[in-house]
Nucleic acid binder design. Structure first.
Lengths: 363, 363
DNA sequence: ACAGCCGTAGCAAGCGCTTTCTATCAGGGA
DNA sequence: TCCCTGATAGAAAGCGCTTGCTACGGCTGT
C-alpha cells in the first residue's frame, strides 16, 4: 500500500539507514549510491512519513505562527511575510530541503485558543513558534502563556514575538520584535496638535490589549505635553481624556459606532484618532454620515498604514508600521537564519505618514 | 526529561494502554480508573507526543488550508472562517477534543509551492486539505495537482475545494464549492450596460487563473448579449474587447497601472470593471489622478465585496461573494461535519451590490 | 451450580524512521 | 609486506504511542 523507506532501500539495494542518510544529507554517502537511492525514491514515488521521522528524530519541521485575526491584513501581511522565510521554495519533490511547514493559527484574539494552539504545537514538537500582535494583559493569562512558552523553549522550540511586547519575565524567548506603538501614537497626536487641534477624540481598541494601551498612552503623552487637556487641573484633564476616549474591537463597525458615540459626547471635537486603519475607515464613514467633511470639518487619522489607507478618500494620515519587514525578520529569527537582536528585544520604528485626512481645524 | 505515556501509566498504576484509551476516549474505561489517569495527567503536566501518536495511529490531526495570498483579505476571510470550524475551542489542557490543527499555507499563487505544500501535508498524513481560490490553468500543473490529490485522497485525506472550480477529472475529491464568478461578472456588466455604458474597460487579473477567465467571460457574455461591442462584425468586436482589457496581478498597484494604460488606449471609456475590489481601489486612484470624478466622469466597479469596499468614496459597486460562509462550509466539509453537496459540487451565488461608484455616463 | 458473557484492563507487537556503533574495504606510510 | 586510517555502509536498538488479542472477574440465564 504505502511505500516506506525499506521499500526504497530494497529497490536501491542498500540499507534503510543509507536511504535515510541520503534523504537527510547529513552524513557522507558515495555519489553513486546516492544517485541509486534517489532514483529509487523517484521510481517508487516515495514520500517520507513525517510523524515517523519526527518521532525518531525528536523534532519536527513545523513552525507555528499565531495571529489574532487572519482576516485582518495587519496579521495577514506579517504572517505571509514570515512564511516566505520559513517554507523554502522547495523543489516540488518529496525531498527535504531545509524548508519547514509554516502553519498559521488563528486565535481570534482569545487567550484560551492561544493556549490551545500552543499546546497543539507543543504536541507536534514544533521547531519554532512566532506570536504576533498585541497580547492580552490579564495577569493570569500572561502567566499561563509564559509557563507554556517556557516549556516549549525547554523542549527546544524557538520562540519569537513579532509586534508584541516581550513578557515581563521574558527570558526563555529567542527574540522579541516590538513596534513602537507608543512613540507612533505620540507623534501622530503631536502632528494634530501642531495643526491646531485641541479637542481630539480617540477611538481605542479593546482595553485589555497591550497594543491598545501603548497607542493610547502615546496619544495622551502628546496631549499632556501640549497641555491640550488642561482645563483647570489634572483631575479634570483625566476626566476629559476619558470622555474623549471610546473603546471597542479592532474592526470597521466598531469604529463607526464608537465615532457616533464620540460625536454625541463631544460634538466639538475637531479631530479623531482611530486605533488602527480599519477602525479609521469606520470612523470616516460615521463622520461623513453625520454630514461632516474630512478634513475640513473634522480630521481623522489611523494607525498601521495598511495598503488601503492610501486609497481612502481623502488618503488617511496614519502611522506606518513595517509589517512585511517585521514579519520576514520574525520568520528568519524563527528559522535561526538571523541572530537575535542584542538583549533579545528590538524596537521597530513607526513612521508618521501625513496625508489628506488631517488638516488644520476650521478657524 | 519529557513525560511520556508510560510515566502517566506508572503514576496512575495502570498500563499505558489504559492511559491511551482514556485520552482517546474510544474504548470503555471504568469511571474510577479514568479519573485516576486524568489526575496523573494533570499532576505530571503530560502532553501527548503528536508524532508518536500519528505514527501509531497512521493519521494525524492536521488540516491544511492552501491560499494564494494570505495578506489578501479575500483569502484571510475564507481561511479564518474555515479555521473556526476546524480548530475546536479546545479546553486549554493537553487532552484531545476532536479539534484539529488547521494550518494555513501560503502558496503565493505559485503552482510549485502549491505542490510542495501538498507534499508536506502528505508527509504529515494530513486529515484534510482545503484548496481555496482560483487555480492556474496550465494543463501540466493541473495534472500534477490532480495526481497529488489523488494520492492524498488514497491515503485517506479529505479534499475540499473552496472558491475553486473542480478538477476536470475530479472524482477523488469530497466536495467543491465554486463561486459563480461568471454569473457575477455578467450581472455586473449588465448593470453597467443598463445604465447606458457602451465602452467599458476591463482590468483583469493574471490571464492564467480560472477566476480571471470566468469573470472576464461573464463580462463579455453581457457585452455580447447587449451587442455593445458590435461595431461592424464579430472580428472587430473581439478586437475591441481585447483593446479594452488589460491583465495584471490581483493587487492595487496593478489596478492603478492597468487603468492608466486603459485610459491611454481608450480615453473614451465611460466605465471600468476591475478584477476585484483591491484592483478597483487602484483603478479609482488612477482615475482620480487623471482628474476625473467617480462616477460622474467614469464609473468603476469591483468584485468580491471585501469589507473596505463599502468605505471607499464613493462606495464601490461590486459583486458580493459570501467568503465567510463559504470558508466555514469548506471547514465543515473538511471535518466531515457536513455532507458534501449532491454531485460533489455546489455553486455559490454571487450577488450584485450596487453602490455609489457606478452611475449613468454623462449625456 | 455451571457455562457463557459482558465489562475492563494488560500484553506485546508493531508504526516507519533516525542514529549510534560496528564492520568492511581501499590505500598509504613505515 | 603489514598495520593504521579514512570513507562508507549496515545492524539494530529504540522514539512514544495505538490496538488486536488475551485474561480475568463477577453476573446472568437455565
Amino acid at each position: 500500500m504505502t511505500v516506506t523507506l525499506a521499500d526504497v532501500a530494497a529497490r536501491a539495494r542498500v540499507s534503510p539507514a543509507t536511504v535515510s542518510r541520503v534523504l537527510n544529507g547529513n552524513y557522507p554517502v558515495a555519489a553513486s549510491t546516492r544517485e541509486r537511492v534517489l532514483r529509487a525514491v523517484d521510481d517508487l514515488d516515495y514520500v517520507l512519513n513525517g510523524p515517523a521521522s519526527s518521532l525518531a528524530a525528536a523534532t519536527s519541521d513545523l513552525v507555528g505562527i499565531l495571529v489574532n485575526d487572519i482576516a485582518d491584513p495587519f496579521f495577514g501581511i506579517m504572517a505571509g511575510a514570515a512564511q516566505t522565510q520559513i517554507g523554502g521554495p522547495g523543489d516540488g519533490s518529496g525531498r527535504a530541503g531545509g524548508e519547514k511547514l509554516a502553519v498559521i493559527c488563528n486565535t481570534g484574539g482569545s487567550p484560551e485558543r492561544e493556549l490551545t494552539y500552543l499546546t497543539l504545537l507543543q504536541r507536534q514538537r514544533a521547531a519554532a513558534v512566532v506570536l504576533t500582535g498585541g497580547a492580552v494583559e490579564d495577569p493570569a493569562h500572561q502567566a499561563a502563556i509564559a509557563a507554556k512558552l517556557a516549556k516549549l523553549a525547554d523542549a527546544g522550540t524557538r520562540i519569537v514575538f513579532c509586534g508584541r511586547p516581550p513578557l515581563p519575565e521574558g527570558d526563555a524567548l529567542v527574540a522579541a520584535l516590538a513596534f513602537d506603538n507608543r512613540g507612533g501614537g505620540r507623534r501622530l497626536t503631536e502632528h494634530l496638535i501642531s495643526l491646531g487641534h485641541r479637542r481630539i477624540g480617540y477611538v481605542a481598541g479593546p482595553p485589555e490589549r497591550t497594543t491598545t494601551r501603548h497607542r493610547l498612552e502615546g496619544h495622551r503623552e502628546a496631549l499632556r505635553a501640549a497641555g491640550a487637556v488642561e482645563e483647570g487641573g489634572t483631575a479634570e484633564g483625566a476626566e476629559a481624556e476619558d470622555r474623549l476616549t471610546v473603546h471597542g474591537p479592532y474592526d470597521r463597525r466598531s469604529g463607526y459606532e464608537a465615532t457616533l458615540e464620540l460625536l454625541r459626547r463631544a460634538p466639538d471635537v475637531t479631530a479623531i484618532v482611530a486605533a488602527n486603519d480599519t477602525v479609521a475607515l469606520g470612523a470616516c464613514a460615521a463622520v461623513r454620515d453625520q454630514g461632516m467633511r474630512i478634513p475640513q470639518d473634522i480630521s481623522v487619522a489611523g494607525f498601521d498604514d495598511l495598503p488601503f489607507s492610501v486609497d481612502a478618500v481623502p488618503a488617511l494620515t496614519t502611522v506606518r508600521l513595517p509589517l512585511f519587514e517585521a514579519g520576514a525578520r520574525a520568520g528568519r529569527l524563527a528559522m535561526g537564519k538571523e541572530n537575535p537582536p542584542p538583549g533579545g528585544i528590538a524596537t521597530i520604528a513607526a513612521e508618521l505618514m501625513i496625508r489628506g485626512s488631517t488638516a488644520a481645524p476650521r478657524g
